[in-house]
Design a binder for these strands. Structure first.
Lengths: 343, 343
DNA sequence: TTTATAAAAGCAATCGATTGCATAAAAATC
DNA sequence: GATTTTTATGCAATCGATTGCTTTTATAAA
């Protein structure tokens, strides 16, 4: 029926001539209820179709078995996989997930965090938006007694638990791979430098060049090329240089790498012979392109699991202890045809 | 600080020598509070860093501004887009989303629904899992005064609000397109027939054949081919027939279509000349394959928005009124090279 | 059988916000 | 200035479950 009230422990108590406290104890299975009445209560609860009201329970217990997740975009492969990984763990623990997307907007990110604070969630798992401005909202999370785990895109300046990808190492490895394949002028497509992940990937790029005594050529480094279109645009510019690159590391994403490939194909530039292309993220399509794309797998679902496990295994116990606050999930370079100049 | 208690309306009241009820009224902006004290309360609230405890509020008000979503897999393109669309609308309305994934398991779907009932959510948006067994759990949702909207994969036998894709029409259109292109023996890769969407797509296939006086050849209809691997496997079988098909409609997904393409490429079969291929869902990769894949775009994000709007615009008012309970989001056939025999 | 002990059940306060009703204060009317 | 009306505030119950404490009942020991 639509509007009938839900059965409460009082309904059960009344029916059995008992006190609500006994019903509560019986249902939580705790203690001090005789087996016989316990069985009776459970039976009646089932008959009356009883369900615990978790609002009341949470209010009284002062804790909410709920975790809030804030990501830039739910429907982005990386994040939907992270969420899936998180959900797998939290489901096991009987926790609920409240999901918000910031849509890459700082303002909205702040609002999402606000909502989650109001909801009194136990912990917030968060990856910051592209136009991240300051971290006041993150600080206020702790003020309200809520825990915080940052993942992937994090604010380095904050001393919170974090789950990270080895962006720098992965970028280093990717560029070194390009060098080993004999590419001489390696360009970089980079993302917004207010995001740690893009800074780190750039650092990896620079470190690899340095190690192999390659000069750093500013002209070969292109900012904000993180969509297919922007990747294509940047490629056009790069190829118009007096001395164009012979390889492009699209450190932002496989989408950008796809843009590079688009341009190469339009111009009849042979990949990987004349131009090497390396992407980032191992999107599903990257093994389907012609040629298939070399890229970096970030094990996004693993990242999600790690985030959740970090909370349950360490944070709930340690509180905010000063040890091992950062977990690294090592990514892996997936070498495919788009960079195999030496076959 | 970590363990300090959160400020409540009582803290504010005490500080201002007022009663908590006035504070509550002031904060909810309702009425009957003088401008001066209202301003004072708002100011103090900010000073004390007050946040409403929504557990308490919801408990008292008996409603929970929360919606539960159950999908087979969060990290599946279609569903993550639907969720994204849902979130966009619910966010506007100040509602929270609790997300669960059934992992295509009926048992887990039941548990998800259980959890959401306990959480006392206002409404559940649900798409059933592949091994859907019965609808007792769906019925019990209404028993607890919770609304239900089914989308995409629905249990037809239940009279609930629904948001659907025009699967049958889309499949019909796809097959008709193949016929118009001159394909003569059109095979079908179909999914588990306990899911409405696959039944409907099959119906569309059959209807199109019938309209054009094509015989229905059982050998050309393959069950449970809904992954890349299974699609490839089914294609192997089809091509081994004495009279193999000259087109394959992978009604299950673009992944299955990709499996078809794999086999064609391995065997040197020319697409679309010797074999036409049509997929379903318009996955990101479908325009990247060589040749690009003809497929059906379902407007998944739109579906999500429609689901949420259905709740806010109709259901909350009408209750369970008997009119216009079903919304259709019409999909669109995206014709690409894999079927353009006459291109 | 009586007393000591353990187990079972009841009582009542509590979590924090909301709201109908009552009262006090301010404003409007005569 | 007295009375009515409006507005502002206070009081207290309520939402449903939990839990420390007390009382009652059953069991074990003396």
């Amino acid at each position: 029926m639509e509007n009938q009230k839900r059965t409460t422990i009082y309904d059960i108590a009344r029916r059995l001539n008992l006190n609500a406290s006994s019903v509560s104890r019986a249902l939580s299975g705790n203690s001090n209820v005789s087996e016989s009445t316990k069985a009776l209560i459970l039976k009646t609860a089932k008959e009356l179709n009883y369900r615990q009201n978790s609002m009341a329970s949470n209010l009284r217990k002062g804790e909410n078995q709920t975790i809030g997740v804030v990501v830039p975009r739910i429907n982005q492969n990386f994040f939907s996989n992270v969420i899936s990984g998180i959900e797998e763990v939290t489901y096991q623990k009987g926790y609920n997930l409240i999901i918000c997307q910031s849509n890459e907007s700082y303002e909205r990110e702040v609002k999402c965090v606000d909502t989650l604070i109001n909801q009194h969630v136990s912990c917030i798992f968060l990856s910051i938006s592209a136009d991240f401005a300051d971290n006041d909202h993150l600080k206020s999370i702790a003020d309200h007694g809520i825990k915080l785990i940052q993942f992937d895109r994090v604010d380095d300046s904050m001393d919170t638990y974090k789950v990270l990808t080895g962006n720098e190492e992965a970028a280093f490895e990717a560029v070194e791979h390009l060098i080993e394949q004999g590419y001489k002028r390696i360009a970089l497509l980079e993302g917004p430098q207010n995001l740690n992940i893009f800074r780190q990937r750039k650092a990896g790029y620079l470190a690899a060049l340095k190690k192999h005594d390659f000069p750093i050529i500013e002209d070969l480094i292109r900012e904000n090329a993180w969509t297919r279109e922007l990747g294509a645009k940047a490629t056009e510019d790069l190829l118009a240089l007096p001395e164009p690159p012979d390889a492009i590391f699209a450190s932002t994403s496989d989408f950008a790498a796809l843009g590079v490939l688009d341009v190469a194909q339009n111009r009849g530039i042979k990949v990987p012979q004349q131009l090497g292309i390396c992407g980032f993220s191992n999107e599903a399509f990257s093994e389907i392109t012609q040629p298939s794309l070399t890229t970096v797998d970030q094990f996004s679902k693993e990242i999600g699991k790690n985030v959740a496990n970090l909370y349950f295994q360490k944070m709930k116990k340690d509180g905010n202890a000063e040890q091992n606050k950062v977990v690294n999930v090592q990514p892996k370079l997936i070498i495919r045809n788009s960079t195999l100049k030496n076959g």
